[in-house]
């Protein structure tokens, strides 16, 4: 199986700009940074959460607490895919009860990952609100989930794959669309 890149849909600058815009939207919607917690979904949501945290700090000079969420044990497709041998950690910076959680992921697709992430957060505490920020919304939702902050809406076919590249794992920051070939 190989991933064939078709086009770059967001370059480095565009990603940075989108995140800055989302930072402003978050601050606008929540009247500042009080009670905010940023949680990225493993793996690529975590560096994006870091970028969002930085962007907020750039505006407000406040470092919002951030953490990571691993949804492996909350997946609903165990019988289909079997257990994943790669499990990452969940890191909660503080008790999320009565906080406003900004949940960050790279791509919003079926909504199942977000569903699982919501369950993880609930098992850690009872936030006042959870808001969803994604860099790319590609459509094809299977659950009633919608994002609060979107970097870019990208209409796709189900055959296509959206890949978000981050500095930490990929050495570059961009979003590409492509297809998986072979099997």
């Amino acid at each position: 199986m190989s991933f064939i890149e078709k086009a770059v849909i967001m370059n480095q600058d565009e990603v940075t700009r989108a995140i800055k815009r989302m930072a402003h939207e978050v601050l606008e919607a929540n009247n500042g940074t009080s009670d905010l917690v940023i949680l990225g979904i493993q793996r690529r949501g975590v560096p994006l959460a870091g970028l969002l945290q930085e962007a907020i700090k750039g505006v407000e000079k406040v470092s919002v607490p951030s953490g990571a969420i691993d949804i492996t044990f909350y997946r609903d497709d165990l019988s289909k895919l079997g257990p994943s041998p790669r499990v990452a950690t969940t890191e909660m910076p503080l008790d999320v009860t009565d906080k406003v959680v900004i949940l960050v992921d790279d791509v919003l697709y079926t909504g199942r990952t977000v569903r699982a992430a919501l369950d993880v957060i609930m098992d850690w505490g009872r936030p006042r609100a959870i808001q969803l920020a994604v860099l790319v919304d590609r459509g094809h939702r299977e659950l009633p989930i919608r994002p609060d902050y979107v970097g870019k809406n990208v209409p796709t076919s189900q055959k296509e794959v959206i890949k978000v590249k981050v500095m930490e794992y990929d050495g570059k920051q961009e979003v590409v669309v492509g297809e998986v070939q072979g099997g």
Binding site: Q42, I71, L78, L81, G82, S84, P85, R86, V87, A88
Partner: peptide, 14 residues
């Protein structure tokens, strides 16, 4: 757990 042990998901699937 999870069905066919020969068809385990690659790590990325999580």
């Amino acid at each position: 757990s999870g069905g066919d042990p020969g068809a385990l998901a690659p790590g990325e699937a999580a």
